[in-house]
Design a protein around this nucleic acid. Structure first.
Ligand SMILES: [Zn+2]
Ligand SMILES: [Zn+2]
Ligand SMILES: [Zn+2]
Ligand SMILES: [Zn+2]
Lengths: 132, 132
DNA sequence: CAATTGATGTAATAACATAACATCTGCAAT
DNA sequence: ATTGCAGATGTTATGTTATTACATCAATTG
């Protein structure tokens, strides 16, 4: 998907996520944008909805948070599955993907005649620095 | 992990999940147990916490719901990663397990010196019946 | 201009989850 | 048996995440 020009609110939300060290909750984003006129959760959620659709932001289901894509423009994103390693201590997120994992999951899915729409792979644990 | 004798509340919550067609939210479980004296969310969440710990119930992160384990006693559960296919139309959940996926993810994790604690794999889409 | 479409603003509410504190129950040590 | 403890439970309140409903605004287009 080619990303269209972002609207004002979408840009504001995206900039906050890009500058952040780690994933942010929608309400944390809201707080960071109060000075820019944001007043209600919906302003954040609506922007996020589009940014997710454009593939420039990912949602981390297991921690109800959002993060800017670490590999913008990477073609794998369009058809591949993205995985995340999330440090439960420092919040650091690493985004990666593995074709073999994709293939195995999609092979299973095909066998079941299941029609996949969105796949979540999230590994929570401790990053190297925090595990030490 | 060997499952200890369940307490009254744990048994009630587990029975509701076992008899359910698909995954249930904590509040749905609460409603189903009002007749048995349940009054507050915490009664459900506390029971779920233990049932998750014993491995007889799984949490589906992407839909904030809980489901009874489909493969109780399966040894793979203790050390392997469980994956779920979730039908967004009828709610049906299929639990499966693929060693190759585990190996690939764990190999990646080792390479990063990341210490995994809990891994989530959830595929949302349409089951065979609903896709037709 | 009128109609449509997409974006935005605002208030209210729904849905999910935890904190804090009191009470009870079973069991072991004295 | 009494005391002390640990685990489970009950209850209220609160915190966090997400959506519904409705009004308004701006750009496009026929
Ligand atoms: Zn990405
Ligand atoms: Zn860390
Ligand atoms: Zn299971
Ligand atoms: Zn279905």
């Amino acid at each position: 998907m080619t990303t269209p020009q972002l609207t004002k609110n979408q840009s504001l939300v995206f900039d906050v996520l890009e500058k952040a060290e780690g994933p942010l909750s929608a309400y944390t984003i809201l707080d960071k944008l109060r000075d820019h006129g944001f007043r209600a959760p919906l302003q954040v959620y609506r922007a996020l909805e589009k940014l997710l659709e454009y593939g420039v932001v990912h949602r981390l289901e297991s921690i109800n948070s959002f993060v800017a894509c670490a590999h913008p423009g990477d073609d794998c994103h369009s058809h591949g599955i993205v995985a995340f390693a999330i440090c439960e201590s420092c919040g650091q997120v690493t985004e990666f993907h593995d074709h073999e994992v994709d293939h195995r999951l999609m092979a299973w899915v095909r066998g079941q005649k299941f029609k996949p729409a969105k796949t979540t792979i999230e590994i929570r644990g401790l990053c190297e620095a925090c595990a030490a």
